[in-house]
C-alpha cells in the first residue's frame, strides 16, 4: 500500500467514525415516545382452526407438536376431545370450537396440538395447523371487531390488523370452568 492510499484510507475511516458517532448521538437523543415500550410488544404463535386465524401469546405455550393418537374419554364435557401421550406424560386436549360454541364450519385438518402451560394448569389445544410466530404491538390490537369472532369477549385480547383473533391463553389456563372434577361434589 502506498503512502497516499494509506492517508486516504485513514481519512475515510476517520470520516466514517465521525458519521457513526453522529448517528449514535442522534439515536440516543430520540425522544422516548417514538420507541414502542418493551412491555407493549407481544410475541404471538398463530394457528388456524376451521379456516379461521387465531393466536396465543407465545409465553403461555410449552410446545407445539403433531397430533398422533388421541384417546377419547367417556363421561367428560364435549370440549374435551381426549387424552394424548406426551413423552410418557398424559395430557388432556380440548377443542376450542366446542368450548366457545363456534360453528364447526369449513374444512378441518386437526394436525397439531398446542400445549398451553402455567404453573397450575396444562392442556393441549387442537389446531389445524400452527403457522408460526410474530411480534405485534399490543396497542394495535382492535377491540371493536371482538364480537365478529364469535368468541366470548372475556377470552379475547383483540384482533390484529390482518384479522387474527388473539386469544387470552392466561385466562383459559386460570379458568376454573375448564377443570373437570366429577364424581365427588364439592
Amino acid at each position: 500500500m502506498t503512502e497516499i492510499n494509506k492517508n486516504t484510507a485513514d481519512a475515510a475511516s476517520e470520516k466514517l467514525r465521525s458519521i457513526l458517532k453522529e448517528r449514535a448521538l442522534r439515536v440516543a437523543a430520540l425522544p422516548q415516545t417514538n420507541i414502542p415500550a418493551a412491555e407493549k410488544m407481544m410475541e404471538l404463535t398463530e394457528f388456524t382452526l376451521s379456516g379461521e386465524k387465531y393466536a396465543f401469546e407465545s409465553a403461555h405455550i410449552r410446545e407445539v407438536r403433531p397430533l398422533e393418537h388421541i384417546t377419547p374419554l367417556p363421561g367428560v364435557p364435549a370440549f374435551i376431545l381426549g387424552i394424548i401421550n406426551v413423552r410418557s406424560e398424559i395430557l388432556s386436549v380440548i377443542d376450542l370450537r366446542k368450548f366457545f360454541d363456534l360453528p364447526e364450519k369449513g374444512l378441518t385438518n386437526l394436525n397439531k396440538v398446542i400445549i398451553l402451560s402455567s404453573p397450575e394448569m396444562e392442556f393441549g389445544v387442537l389446531a389445524d395447523d400452527a403457522t408460526g410466530g410474530r411480534v405485534v404491538n399490543a396497542d394495535n390490537l382492535v377491540k371493536t371487531l371482538v364480537t365478529l369472532t364469535g368468541i366470548r369477549e372475556e377470552y379475547l385480547m383483540g384482533v390484529t390488523t390482518d384479522r387474527t383473533a388473539v386469544l387470552d391463553a392466561g385466562k383459559l389456563l386460570s379458568d376454573k370452568r375448564i377443570i373437570v372434577r366429577e364424581g365427588v361434589e364439592t
Binding site: E68, G75, V76, I83, I90, S92, F123, R181, E182
Partner: peptide, 23 residues
C-alpha cells in the same frame, strides 16, 4: 394421572400407556 385439567373423571382412575404408545 390424566393431566392437570382432568382432576377427577367419573369411573376412571387414570390412564396407562400401552405398547403402541396410546394412552
Amino acid at each position: 394421572p390424566l393431566g392437570r385439567q382432568l382432576q377427577k373423571v367419573k369411573n376412571i382412575t387414570g390412564a396407562a400407556i400401552i405398547g403402541s404408545g396410546a394412552p
